[in-house]
């Protein structure tokens, strides 16, 4: 572990910080915007910027999975949910509950604690980025050699979630009396 100065930041760090700025800014817009659909669209921006962060951190496979599943599937699901619950499309002023101030205080306290702990704990940690460390080849080999059992358990969990979602959303299945 060699000591590297914070100033000047390398090009990679500048790119990462810009992407992180986009992610944090759009996340702030997600939790503060007054239009429900805009929140989902800002979520797309946030997830896309995070995928860029993963790319900068050489985790390319994770980045593409993020784009496919989060931007492609999760946000579309959320938009479907917004549509099916007949949410108002325009501005609506009742999206926030009465405890905004308390929530802001809790969030600022969380951010303060986490950031100070992280900065205090890892200010000398420096990661040498090695291209190709997160490629599909390496990750696939790792999943199917060392992580096969959790992988299979996860596929069972996905199946259970699928069946659960079907059972929950069908109206003609009655419970046992």
């Amino acid at each position: 572990m060699r000591a590297v100065d914070f100033w000047p930041p390398s090009t990679l760090e500048i790119v990462f910080l810009l992407l992180g700025l986009v992610a944090v800014g759009s996340a702030l817009l997600v939790v503060t915007t007054r239009q429900l659909v805009h929140a989902a669209l800002w979520l797309v921006v946030c997830f896309g910027a995070l995928a860029g962060c993963y790319l900068v951190l050489t985790a390319e496979f994770v980045a593409w999975v993020q784009v496919l599943i989060y931007v492609g599937a999760v946000v579309v699901l959320l938009l479907f949910g917004i549509m099916l619950t007949r949410a108002p499309i325009g501005r609506s002023d009742d999206l926030d509950s009465g405890n905004r101030v308390v929530a802001a205080v809790v969030a600022v306290a969380t951010a303060g604690v986490l950031v100070s702990v992280v900065v205090g704990g890892f200010q000398h940690a420096y990661a040498d980025l090695r291209p190709g460390a997160g490629s599909a080849e390496e990750l696939g080999a790792s999943i199917f050699r060392n992580w096969v059992l959790p992988f299979e358990a996860l596929s069972v969990l996905l199946l259970a979630a699928l069946i659960g979602a079907i059972v929950l959303s069908r109206t003609d299945i009655k419970g046992r009396r």
Binding site: L17, L28, V31, V56, A104, V118, Q123, A125, Y126
Partner: peptide
Amino acid sequence: MHVVYPAVVAALLFSIGVYG
């Protein structure tokens, strides 16, 4: 890449999620 940068971005995102 200093580890602090991704860790701080993640901490900020987490607290934004807590607020939401």
